[in-house]
Design a binder for these strands. Structure first.
Lengths: 204, 204
DNA sequence: GTTAGATTCTAACCAAAGTTAGATCAGCCG
DNA sequence: CGGCTGATCTAACTTTGGTTAGAATCTAAC
C-alpha cells in the first residue's frame, strides 16, 4: 500500500471531488440530465477516469445519495439529541434540517427530490433514509403527545408536511434562521427557554 | 380544413395522448430522463410521428408545463373566489391545490418540481406560474392581516412553506381531504362555517 | 371515386452519452 | 535502480436519443 492507513490517499481526494461535482450536476439537471462528461470536467478529470473510482454512473449517483443522507442524519443526530422538552427538540430538529439543507446544498437537493426516483436505489440509502424519517416521526409524535402540535393527524403525515415545507424553503435559498422563525410562528410553537428568541442556535 | 371548427379533430386527440404520456414520463424520470421513444410508445405512436405535433422535445416539455399550470390555476380560480372570510378563502385554496395535485397528478408533479429547471422556460409558463404564486401570496397576506395566520413572516415566505408542505403530501399520494385536515389542525385554523367539519368540499 | 390535406410510418442520420481496453505516468518498496 | 501498484489519460466502441426527409395511409370534401 501507499501511505499509512490513517492518511487520506490521493484517490480519496479525487473521489470526493467527483462526488461534489456529481452532486452539483445532479442538483441542477437531475440524475438523468447529469452527464459524466460534465461531471468529469467539473472535477478536472477525463471522462474515462471516473470509472477508476465508480463502477458505473448508477453507482456514482447512488454514492451521492448515500453521502447526502449520511451527512443529514449526522447533523440531525448532533442537534436533536434526546434532551429538553419535545418543543425544544422539535425546534432543534428544524434547525438541523435547515442547516443541512443550506450547508450540503447540492447533496441535500439530490436527497430530497422525491419525484425522480433513482431506480434500484442502493440499500444503504434506503436504510439511512428510513432511519432519518423514523427519527423525525418520533420527534413529532412526542410534540403531539405534549400538546405542542395538534394531536389529530398521524405523525408520519405531519412529518411529510413539515419536511416538505422546510425543503421548499431550503431549495428556494431562504435563510435558515428566517425560515425557522416563520415555521415556528405559523405552528405557534412556544419560543421557550431552549433556543433563544428565534435565532438559529450557535454551533461551531 | 377537415371537420367543423368546433369539433375536436383526430390530431387534437393524439396531441392530448402525447401530452399525457409525456407528463407521465417526465413525472417519473425528469425532463432529461424522459425519452421520446418512451413517450411515443406510451402514446401508441412511432417516435418520428411526435414531430408532426411538436416541433421538438423542448417544445413538448414546455407544452406539458404550460398545461399543468393552466389547469392548476383554473382550479384555484374556481374554488378560491373572493368570497367569505380570509380563513375560508385560505381553506378553499388549500383544497384547490390539493385537488389539482391529485387530479392532474403527472402534470402537477412536473409543474411543481422546482429543482430541475427546464432551461429556457416558455414565457407563457413563466407568466402563469407567476400569477399562481401571486394569487397565493394574496390569500396569505389577507389571512395574516386577519390574524388567521401569524403576521411575522413575509407572505411569499409563508406561501413557499405552505405549498411545499402541500406538494410533499400530494406527491406522496396522501388523500387530499386528510392532508387538508392535518394542515388546518397544525395551523390551528378555525374550522369556521365555510367548509364543514374538515372534509373536502364537494365539486362535480 | 378522386383529390387535397391531415396524419402516421419508415428509415435513415447525427450527436451525445456510457462504457471499455490498453497505454502512460507517478510514486513507493525492495 | 527496477519493478509494482495506484491513478489517470487516450482512443476507441456501442447504444441511445433527438431529428429529419420522404413515402404511405387515412379522412373528408367534392
Amino acid at each position: 500500500m501507499t501511505g499509512a492507513s490513517t492518511e487520506v490517499s490521493k484517490g480519496d481526494l479525487t473521489r470526493r471531488r467527483i462526488l461534489d461535482a456529481a452532486a452539483a450536476e445532479i442538483a441542477r439537471h437531475g440524475p438523468a440530465g447529469a452527464s459524466l462528461n460534465a461531471i468529469a470536467a467539473a472535477a478536472d478529470l477525463r471522462t474515462g477516469s471516473l470509472y477508476f473510482h465508480f463502477a458505473s454512473k448508477q453507482r456514482l449517483v447512488e454514492a451521492v445519495l448515500e453521502e447526502g443522507i449520511r451527512a443529514s442524519l449526522q447533523r440531525l443526530d448532533a442537534m436533536a439529541v434526546p434532551t429538553g422538552t419535545p418543543a425544544q427538540r422539535l425546534r432543534a430538529g428544524v434547525h438541523a434540517h435547515l442547516r443541512a439543507l443550506a450547508e450540503l446544498s447540492d447533496y441535500a437537493v439530490v436527497v430530497l427530490a422525491p419525484p425522480f426516483s433513482v431506480d434500484a436505489e442502493l440499500d444503504g440509502f434506503r436504510t439511512l433514509r428510513r432511519e432519518y424519517l423514523r427519527r423525525w416521526a418520533g420527534l413529532i409524535a412526542d410534540a403531539q403527545a405534549d400538546g405542542t402540535l395538534a394531536a389529530g393527524p398521524e405523525p408520519g403525515e405531519v412529518r411529510d408536511l413539515l419536511l416538505g415545507a422546510l425543503n421548499a424553503a431550503g431549495l428556494a435559498g431562504q435563510d435558515p434562521g428566517r425560515t425557522a422563525d416563520a415555521v415556528f410562528a405559523l405552528l405557534r410553537l412556544p419560543s421557550g427557554p431552549g433556543t433563544p428568541g428565534g435565532g438559529a442556535p450557535r454551533t461551531p
